[in-house]
Design a protein around this nucleic acid. Structure first.
Lengths: 120, 120
DNA sequence: CCATATACCTATTTAGTCTAGGCGTGTTGA
DNA sequence: TCAACACGCCTAGACTAAATAGGTATATGG
């Protein structure tokens, strides 16, 4: 996942936050099943272009989650008449999501404590 | 950096947030120069045990930052009569910190937008 | 004198992301 | 008609940060 660079279009933006991708994907699928390409666009749009998920990151992540039983996939024909692989979250994935969100929040809490100016 | 596991003491906690370590170190050094071992304890204490920085992560990170000119180091004798390598932030490091914090915040903003429930 | 805490460090492994492609198909418009 | 483009799937390899699992040395306390 990269923060989308606003000025230059081609320069490689450094990455941050491995692990967050999985959470965002699981949370999104928790709301509604979706195919990969749609996930890319969904995340970009909902983040108001702050984030851009590379397909080269997303698909391997989906494979990992499939293998781990966190999501399941089904080939369908989309309304736009294309073969799409639609992913949905499994009960195991939902449980995992809860855990990861909680870990995520604790981590953020910890970081913000460290970054907060010391109180006299 | 690992979230400190509260129940089991030995199991490996998964990592999150590569990149955050650098920010926390630079911000801490921005407040006051400090040696490595002290940074480990500082971060753990200020995060109220939510985070635990492994020395095997910290020292390589400090080396990277040294090499990149973000911090500089000096050998001293501590009040406890030990040879310590005290790190301080450079002007370049301070500039870098600002950038990284801003990137960090944008990333968080993006993630929270994606994770926030859709509005009807 | 020995255990422990302090303090530094590195080599190797692990894991996720990015880069940089490739492939096939439906739609659009010149 | 047919070429370009958007859609939609995917992978191999490079890169990088972090964790693991060590090692070394010295001061202090019991």
């Amino acid at each position: 996942m990269t923060p989308k660079s606003k000025s230059s279009s081609h320069s490689a933006a450094r990455d941050l936050f491995p692990g967050a991708l999985e959470i965002m994907v699981l949370q999104t699928l928790h709301w509604q099943p979706m195919h990969g390409y749609a996930l890319v666009q969904h995340i970009q749009q909902r983040s108001r272009d702050l984030l851009q998920v590379e397909e080269g990151s997303l698909y391997p992540a989906l494979q990992r989650m499939l293998k781990a039983g966190l999501v399941e996939a089904e080939w369908k024909i989309s309304p736009t008449n294309r073969r799409v692989r639609t992913y949905s979250i499994t009960p195991k994935g939902a449980k995992h999501l809860e855990l990861e969100v909680s870990r995520f929040e604790q981590m953020l809490e910890g970081i913000s404590l460290v970054l907060a100016p010391a109180k006299g």
